[in-house]
């Protein structure tokens, strides 16, 4: 179960692009140095166990920030986030992979970063290698991988711990059709085991296939929460 009550997320950002002390001193007093910018404002959302919810919205509307907040990477400025269950990380394409090291070494590294103990990693290793379909390539340095191979590796690592809450940030649209289908099938499997899935995508078709419920995020607020068809229509109207 995931429950957000009155969640605000604000960043202090350097609106005028100060990155050095010189700029900072020269402009002191002219502008206020750090501006508080609200990325999410007063978000209320409840997702039940076993539900699959698609997040739709324009670029920069706050979808990824919402996912980061759900995974515990960002703490809310105000409000409360309640969440029960093991969360899979948001591994974007190639994130955290060390290009000089081999596929196997990267699996060990990323699993460790996700908080697994070395015993758990040893147990999961064959499954991860099998799912990634990399074959002998797991022993290559990752710098010799193609883009598709890298994302297959990332996705296989993220998904293998059988997470109870799966947050997906547009990572499914990589790899060839065969691997995409396999990923969707695996997500379905995880859902069947009772996991909660929150799914960010710009592809309305994908959301429609996977989810029964959709949420439209616009300018940091939840604009609509309802069936996929309803939300899809409003989403498409945003661009007209």
């Amino acid at each position: 179960m995931i429950k957000l009550s009155n969640v605000d997320i604000a960043f202090h950002i350097q609106e005028n692009g100060f990155v050095s002390i010189k700029d900072f001193l020269l402009n002191l007093g002219k502008y206020s140095f750090l501006k508080k910018k609200y990325i999410l404002k007063d978000v209320n959302l409840e997702i039940k166990k076993g539900e699959c919810v698609g997040l739709l919205g324009k670029n920069g509307s706050g979808k990824s920030t919402l996912l980061r907040a759900l995974s515990g990477i960002i703490e809310p400025t105000k409000g409360k986030i309640e969440l029960n269950g093991r969360v899979a990380p948001l591994l974007g394409l190639g994130v955290g992979l060390e290009k000089e090291l081999s596929g196997t070494e990267n699996i060990k590294l990323l699993c460790a970063l996700m908080g697994m103990t070395s015993k758990e990693i040893k147990e999961l290793m064959p499954d991860i290698i099998a799912f990634s379909e990399l074959g002998d390539a797991v022993n290559w340095q990752v710098k010799r991988y193609s883009t598709g191979m890298m994302s297959r590796l990332s996705f296989s690592i993220a998904i293998m711990k059988n997470p109870e809450i799966l947050l997906i940030d547009e990572v499914l649209s990589v790899g060839d059709i065969g691997f995409q289908r396999k990923c969707l099938k695996k997500v379905q499997e995880i859902m069947d085991m009772g996991a909660t899935v929150v799914f960010v995508s710009h592809s309305f078709e994908e959301v429609k296939r996977m989810c029964s419920r959709a949420v439209l995020v616009n300018e940091g607020k939840i604009e609509h929460d309802g069936t996929v068809e309803e939300v899809g229509e409003i989403y498409h109207n945003l661009f007209n």
Binding site: I73, P89, G96, M114
Partner: peptide, 9 residues
């Protein structure tokens, strides 16, 4: 930075 943004460590 990349890891910091995507893993809840």
């Amino acid at each position: 930075g990349d890891i910091l943004k995507s893993v809840n460590l």
